[in-house]
Design a protein around this nucleic acid. Structure first.
Length: 558
RNA sequence: UGGGGUAUAGCCAAGUGGUAAGGCACCGGUUUCUGGUACCGGCAUUCCCAGGUUCGAAUCCUGGUACCCCAGCCA
C-alpha cells in the first residue's frame, strides 16, 4: 500500500510548517511518552503516527521516552511490549530509548531550586486533609498550615524525604502557587511523594518520586522537545506546564499542544478497562486478537500500513468524537485486497460427489495467487470426484436470486468447472448430508452455451484438503458505546460470540504456511496465521475481517 | 458568570470574508469465474440556535444552547 502516513493536513501540522517557514523553528523535535503500565492501544497508535509522522515529514526527530514516575504500576514487560509495538508499526525513535527516570537527579535539584525561591514547600497534610483544603470546583481552597515553612526547613525536610526518613504518605513536596486559583491544577500541586518501592529502572535509589506535572515539561525541556503533543485532558495542565518552564532554569522552552484522543465505537480504549479484561481472563491476554491493543491487532492480522492508514484517515483535531469501526475495517480490507494472496477454505463443509467423474479422476489447475498481481505467482489446485463446499452455498429451497447451488441449479466451482446439482441426500435426521452433482466438462475457462451461470463458489478436494483451525473474531462488545453505560458496567455488553472456532478445510497450499502469513479466503474474508499457535503443518488462522457481504445485506433488507 | 474546551451530513474531517474538500457508511448503476474488487453516479441551498456587521458570513460581532474535561500523594 502506498499510503504515506500523516499526509492529511491538521492544525498541528499547519502550525509547525508555518513556524518552519517563518524561521521560528529550526528543527522539529517531538516525543512519544508512554507510561509502561499497560499495552499500547489504537489510541496510542494515533499519537505515535502523529509524533513520529510529523518528525519524519519535517525532517525532525522523535524521541521515545517512558514516563516512568510511578514504580507501583509500571513493569519491564510493558516497556518491552511498547518498544515492539512501535517498531512493528514501522517507526524509529531518535537516539536511545529515554526514561523520565534518567532525569530524577536533575528534577530533584530543580525541586530544591523551587524551594530556595520560596516556590515549593513540604506539606505534612495527609491525602484526605489535602483534599479538604483544596476546595471544590466552585469554592477556593485554603492554604495548608505548613505552607509558610522556612526555606531551610523545607530543604532539610525534602532531603530527609529523599533519604527515606519518612513513611509513605507522611509528607509531600508541593508547589506554592495559588490555593484560590479557578484552575484546580494550580492549587499547590504535589511535586513529590514518598514511595518506598523498587523502580524498574532506578532500582532502590529513590524513596521519593516526582509527579507527572513536575516531570513531563522539564523532561521535554531537557531533551529539547519543541512540540509536546498530548491529549485534551491535559489542557488544564498547560498553565502548570508553563509555570515550571518559567520558574526553573531549563535549557529550552517546549510548547504543549493538545488534540482529541481517539475513540472507537464497539470497543473500549482505556488502559484501565483493557487491564480489567485481561486480569479477569475475559480475553486471552493483552494481545488477544479481539483487543484494540496494537499487539492484539497485530495478532488479529492487521498490517502496520493499515493501522497507519487508519490513523491518517481519522485525522487530528480538537473535537472529541467517536470514530466508526468500519473505518478501521476499511483500512485493513483495502490493504489486504491488494496485498494478500488468495486461497480457498471451506468453513462449514458439505460433501459434494461429482457423479459423472470417475473414482480416480484428478485434475490439477494452475491458479493465480492473486487476480491482479502476477508477481504473486500461481498455486496448484487439485480437483477430484469428491469435494467440499460450504453449507452456506447450498439451499434446498432457495429464495429468488440465490445464485449458488440448489436442486437443479448450476454454479461455477471457482477456477474450475460449472456443476449442476442433481440430487440431495439427507441423513437420518433429515439434515442435508451430501450432494450429487454433474460436471459440465465444456466449461473450463469459458461460459456454458445458451445459459448464464451467475454463481461462483469455493471448494476443496476431499482427498487433498487440509484441516485448518479457524478463529472467527467479532467485536468484543455488542453496543456502540460500552463505556458510556450510565447505570451499568461496560462488561454487561460483552459479545458472547466474539470468538467462534471452527474446524475448516483448506486447499493444499495452506498446509505449510508460516505464522503471520495473510490470505484472503475467497468469498469469506481475510485471515492471518496466528503468530503463536500456527506452525507449518498445523495451520491456525485468525479472521482479521470478513469480506463485505452484499448478499447478506440484501437479505436483511428483504 | 468555578475554570478549561468543542460544535460543519449517520461517523471522522477540510475550510479562517468570495459562495460547503476528502474519507467511512449509505443508495443507485456498470464490469466481474470472489454476491468481493474496480469503475460511474447520488448523498449538507447550508455549517448548534437567534440576532447583527458586510455587496457578500461556516468564517467577523453580540447573546444563547448543547456536549466534553478538571476537585490522585495516577499519567
Amino acid at each position: 500500500m502506498s499510503t504515506d502516513s500523516t499526509s492529511a493536513p491538521n492544525f498541528i501540522r499547519n502550525q509547525i510548517s508555518e513556524e518552519l517557514e517563518q524561521g521560528r523553528l529550526n528543527q522539529l523535535v517531538t516525543r512519544f511518552p508512554p507510561e509502561p503500565n499497560g499495552f499500547l492501544h489504537i489510541g496510542h497508535a494515533k499519537s505515535i503516527c502523529l509524533n513520529f509522522g510529523l518528525a519524519e515529514q519535517f525532517g525532525g526527530r522523535c524521541h521515545l521516552r517512558f514516563d516512568d514516575t510511578n514504580p507501583a504500576k509500571e513493569e519491564q514487560v510493558y516497556i518491552d511490549a511498547i518498544r515492539d509495538d512501535i517498531e512493528w508499526l514501522g517507526f524509529h525513535w531518535s537516539g536511545d530509548v529515554r526514561y523520565a527516570s534518567d532525569y530524577f537527579e536533575q528534577l530533584y535539584e530543580w525541586a530544591c531550586h523551587l524551594i530556595r525561591e520560596g516556590l515549593a514547600y513540604v506539606d505534612d497534610l495527609d491525602a484526605e486533609q489535602m483534599r479538604e483544603y483544596r476546595g471544590t470546583l466552585t469554592e477556593p481552597g485554603r492554604p495548608s498550615p505548613w505552607r509558610e515553612r522556612s526555606v531551610a526547613e523545607n530543604l532539610a525536610l525534602f532531603e530527609a524525604m529523599r533519604n527515606g526518613d519518612f513513611e509513605e504518605g507522611e509528607k509531600v513536596l508541593r508547589a506554592k502557587i495559588d490555593m484560590a486559583s479557578p484552575n484546580i491544577n494550580l492549587r499547590d500541586p504535589t511535586l513529590y511523594r514518598i514511595r518506598h518501592a523498587a523502580h524498574h529502572q532506578s532500582g532502590e535509589r529513590w524513596k521519593i518520586y516526582p509527579a507527572y506535572d513536575f516531570t513531563h515539561g522539564q523532561s521535554d525541556a531537557i531533551e529539547g522537545i519543541t512540540h509536546s503533543l498530548c491529549t485534551l485532558e491535559f489542557e488544564d495542565h498547560r498553565p502548570l506546564y508553563n509555570w515550571f518552564l518559567e520558574n526553573l532554569p531549563v535549557p529550552s522552552q517546549p510548547r504543549q499542544i493538545e488534540f482529541a484522543r481517539l475513540n472507537l465505537n464497539y470497543t473500549v480504549t482505556s488502559k484501565r478497562k483493557l487491564k480489567l479484561l485481561v486480569d479477569n481472563d475475559i480475553v486471552d491476554g493483552w494481545d488477544d486478537p479481539r483487543m484494540p491493543t496494537i499487539s492484539g491487532m497485530r495478532r488479529r492480522g492487521y498490517t502496520p500500513a493499515s493501522v497507519r492508514k487508519f490513523c491518517d484517515m481519522v485525522g487530528v483535531a480538537r473535537a472529541a468524537g467517536v470514530v466508526d469501526i468500519q473505518m478501521l475495517y476499511h483500512a485493513i480490507r483495502s490493504d489486504l485486497e491488494e496485498n494478500a494472496p488468495r486461497a480457498m477454505c471451506v468453513m462449514k463443509p458439505l460433501k459434494v460427489v461429482l457423479s459423472n467423474l470417475e473414482e480416480a479422476f484428478e485434475q490439477r489447475f494452475e491458479v493465480a495467487g492473486h487476480p491482479a498481481r502476477e508477481d504473486m505467482g500461481t498455486r496448484s489446485l487439485p480437483l477430484t470426484r469428491e469435494i467440499w463446499i460450504d453449507r452456506d452455498d447450498f439451499m434446498e429451497e432457495p429464495p429468488k436470486k440465490f445464485f449458488r447451488l440448489a436442486p437443479g441449479q448450476e454454479v461455477r466451482l471457482r477456477n474450475a468447472y460449472v456443476i449442476r446439482c442433481d440430487e440431495v441426500i439427507h441423513d437420518d435426521s433429515g439434515e442435508v448430508s451430501e450432494l450429487r452433482c454433474s460436471v459440465d466438462l465444456e466449461t473450463l475457462g469459458r461460459n456454458p452455451e445458451g445459459r448464464k451461470v451467475k454463481g461462483v463458489i469455493h471448494w476443496v478436494s476431499v482427498a487433498h484438503g487440509v484441516p485448518v483451525e479457524v478463529r472467527n473474531y467479532d467485536n468484543l462488545f455488542t453496543v456502540e458505546a460500552p463505556d458510556r453505560d450510565r447505570d451499568g458496567d461496560f462488561l454487561d455488553h460483552l459479545n458472547p460470540e466474539s470468538l467462534e472456532t471452527v474446524q475448516a478445510i483448506g486447499e493444499p497450499a495452506l498446509a505449510e504456511i508460516e505464522p503471520e502469513s495473510r490470505f484472503q479466503f475467497e468469498r469469506v474474508g481475510y485471515f492471518c496465521a496466528d503468530r503463536y499457535d500456527s506452525a507449518p503443518g498445523r495451520p491456525v488462522f485468525n479472521r482479521t475481517v470478513s469480506l463485505k457481504d452484499g448478499w447478506a445485506k440484501a437479505q436483511k433488507k428483504a
